[in-house]
Amino acid sequence: TPAEQLLSKCPWKEYKSDSGKPYYYNSQTKESRWAKPKELEDLEGYQNTIV
């Protein structure tokens, strides 16, 4: 779907730490963070409005 294509192009991906806590990693900037990036939230919100 178009929304899945947008998400696949987003540099932010969700991973799980050893303790199972989700964290987010940007493959372009090599940045990681615990809080979900706004860019990823926006894309997921867009995906939910299409489905």
Score class of each variant (00 low, 15 high):
residue 1 T to C: 08
residue 1 T to K: 01
residue 2 P to R: 10
residue 2 P to F: 15
residue 2 P to L: 08
residue 2 P to M: 15
residue 3 A to V: 13
residue 3 A to S: 12
residue 3 A to R: 11
residue 3 A to C: 02
residue 3 A to F: 13
residue 3 A to Y: 12
residue 4 E to Y: 00
residue 4 E to A: 05
residue 6 L to R: 15
residue 6 L to E: 09
residue 8 S to A: 14
residue 8 S to W: 07
residue 8 S to L: 06
residue 8 S to Q: 07
residue 9 K to I: 07
residue 9 K to M: 04
residue 9 K to L: 06
residue 10 C to S: 11
residue 10 C to K: 06
residue 10 C to L: 06
residue 10 C to M: 13
residue 10 C to D: 11
residue 10 C to H: 14
residue 10 C to F: 10
residue 11 P to H: 10
residue 12 W to L: 02
residue 12 W to C: 00
residue 13 K to H: 11
residue 13 K to R: 11
residue 14 E to R: 10
residue 14 E to M: 12
residue 15 Y to Q: 09
residue 15 Y to I: 13
residue 16 K to E: 02
residue 16 K to G: 04
residue 16 K to S: 07
residue 16 K to Q: 14
residue 17 S to C: 02
residue 17 S to W: 00
residue 18 D to N: 10
residue 18 D to T: 10
residue 18 D to G: 08
residue 19 S to G: 11
residue 20 G to Q: 02
residue 20 G to R: 01
residue 21 K to R: 12
residue 21 K to F: 07
residue 21 K to P: 07
residue 22 P to A: 09
residue 22 P to T: 11
residue 23 Y to V: 10
residue 23 Y to D: 05
residue 23 Y to G: 03
residue 23 Y to T: 03
residue 24 Y to I: 01
residue 25 Y to P: 02
residue 25 Y to K: 13
residue 26 N to L: 00
residue 26 N to H: 00
residue 27 S to T: 12
residue 28 Q to C: 06
residue 28 Q to W: 09
residue 28 Q to P: 00
residue 28 Q to R: 09
residue 28 Q to F: 06
residue 29 T to D: 02
residue 29 T to G: 01
residue 30 K to H: 10
residue 30 K to T: 04
residue 30 K to M: 02
residue 30 K to S: 06
residue 31 E to F: 00
residue 31 E to Q: 10
residue 32 S to N: 04
residue 32 S to K: 09
residue 33 R to F: 04
residue 33 R to K: 13
residue 33 R to L: 12
residue 33 R to M: 14
residue 33 R to H: 14
residue 34 W to N: 14
residue 34 W to D: 10
residue 35 A to E: 14
residue 36 K to D: 05
residue 36 K to Q: 04
residue 37 P to K: 01
residue 37 P to Y: 00
residue 39 E to H: 03
residue 39 E to P: 04
residue 40 L to Q: 03
residue 41 E to R: 10
residue 41 E to D: 10
residue 43 L to P: 07
residue 44 E to Q: 07
residue 44 E to I: 06
residue 45 G to A: 14
residue 45 G to Y: 09
residue 45 G to E: 14
residue 46 Y to N: 01
residue 46 Y to L: 11
residue 46 Y to H: 15
residue 47 Q to K: 05
residue 48 N to R: 08
residue 48 N to C: 03
residue 48 N to M: 01
residue 49 T to A: 04
residue 49 T to S: 14
residue 49 T to L: 06
residue 49 T to E: 11
residue 50 I to T: 15
residue 50 I to V: 15
residue 50 I to M: 15
residue 50 I to R: 12
residue 50 I to G: 13
